[in-house]
Design a binder for these strands. Structure first.
Lengths: 122, 122
DNA sequence: CAGCATCCTAAGAGATACTG
DNA sequence: CAGTATCTCTTAGGATGCTG
């Protein structure tokens, strides 16, 4: 417990929204969970090639704290934890969609490459 | 010239869009320029309380490079430079709007404070 | 006025090893 | 399986002083 001041003060709404999305993998996590409905920790790892365990859990915890992600723990052996979007997370995803389209257009515009994300077409 | 790889590769559209908006003051710059139409360097500084010259010019340069901002130089003494949004910048602002509303709602939700931005009500 | 150069700090991110 | 705990590295960001 040393970081994550979070929750303002903010300059404006965009500032407040960005605070919740900023983080190298957060928008990807949002996207993964939105498309798969629910994912286990290891599944998310596989879906986000390059992410470290540390970053993934750190982002997930923050997103949970921010009310975007729901964490369901099954007290079993071996352990099982499922992550999914809350309604709030879904609503964020919705307003992010136009931005995503803009970005896709930008990729075309500048001829940017897309890193292939395996386990995403499921 | 040591930083600013920029332009991909990206995981998805949101990734590509975020790349252009990420930076502590970029969304604010977008907002300022959108509301004032055109602003001089010093005016932007005043409108963004707390920004350093370095960060402001750095962000402006990147946004110019990204095609979001237009930089008009008047070869006068004393120097005069005016910044404004390009059509592309305006289009980004448009897709950012829903995100801004979501963020504003989030501020209400969590009771976040808003830092007062002077010279903004003009 | 508008901007560049330099130095410095702190937060973000990555790698690796270990545990309930 | 689903994490924790460190340690290191890189980057964004900030402060200050100088220039065309």
């Amino acid at each position: 417990m040393a970081k994550s001041a979070r929750r303002g003060p903010y300059f404006c709404g965009i500032d407040a929204a960005m605070d919740v999305v900023t983080g190298k993998w957060k928008s990807l996590i949002l996207w993964e969970l939105h498309h798969h409905g629910t994912r286990r920790f290891a599944e998310l790892r596989r879906g986000l090639p390059g992410v470290s365990e540390k970053m993934l859990i750190q982002h997930l915890r923050e997103m949970e704290e921010d009310g975007l992600v729901h964490r369901e723990v099954y007290r079993e052996v071996p352990p099982k934890v499922e992550y999914s979007l809350t309604e709030y997370g879904v609503s964020l995803n919705a307003v992010l969609a136009p931005l995503g389209e803009w970005g896709t257009e930008r990729m075309r515009r500048i001829g940017a490459e897309k890193v292939s994300v395996n386990a995403v077409t499921t």
